[in-house]
Amino acid sequence: MMISRISIIVVLSYIITSTSAYDPDALQDLCVADKSHGTKLNGFPCKETSNITASDFFFAGISKPAVINSTSGSAVTGANVEKIPGLNTLSVSLARIDYAPGGLNPPHTHPRATEVVYVLEGELEVGFITTANKLFSKTIKIGEVFVFPRGLVHFQKNNGKSPASVLSAFNSQLPGTVSVAAALFATEPALPEDVLTKTFQVGTKMVDKIKERLATKK
């Protein structure tokens, strides 16, 4: 009896872990996102089959470089379920990232997906940090690929004198992005100031200066 109970617990634990690790599996051919419905429960409701068109599976937004006007010198163009309704329940999405010379995609995480980048143009320094605070970094060039494991802090930087761009693939229809700097210094409402001063071992003037600089980037 004890063995069977343990077996059931192990099996249930495996099922729960497996089902929560990725986007839900599709149980039908299509579930095009119906954003007008207003309801959202771990995904979007399905559009009526009669209203589905080929346009629900098409997006031309990553065919050309984006206009870069950020202070970090990079621009991200997502091709996820919010842009392509047909991706709903399919557990996959793309993004294009363009970098000006010296441009940076600042340290961030994707809580719901592993990311694979393929270099379209230029040369980039990329890297991620493990939970043991170990950095894995490499310089990648046109045609080369690098992987950022799910949930780990990572970055990309164009150290060259010409523009660069990558195509990113995710195993989620909506991977989500948490910017490290913005999450700490630009939240609404703001984190308690003493949390930041004690975390970074700096004074309130330094914290206020960082907040002010990030606020000007919005």
Rank of each mutant, 00 (worst) to 15 (best):
R5K: 14
S93E: 03
K40T: 11
P175L: 09
G122K: 03
V81A: 04
E144T: 08
T139L: 01
D98E: 06
T109C: 12
E123S: 09
G143L: 12
F155G: 10
S50H: 06
I84E: 02
D208L: 13
S4L: 15
F136Y: 14
L196S: 15
N171S: 01
A100P: 02
A183G: 15
A54R: 05
A183R: 07
T199C: 13
P149M: 10
K141R: 14
P192K: 12
K40H: 11
I129V: 15
Q156G: 14
D25C: 12
I129P: 03
D34N: 11
P107E: 07
A186C: 10
V153M: 13
G61N: 00
S4H: 15
K141G: 06
G61V: 05
G151Q: 05
P107R: 03
K205D: 13
R213T: 05
I84M: 04
S91W: 04
L167N: 07
L135D: 04
A66R: 01
T71Q: 06
D34C: 09
G103R: 03
I6D: 12
T216Y: 13
I3K: 09
K217F: 14
A215E: 14
K198V: 01
F59Y: 06
C31E: 02
T114C: 10
L135G: 02
R112N: 07
P175A: 12
E193A: 07
V180A: 11
S168C: 06
F136T: 12
L191E: 11
P24A: 12
Q201F: 11
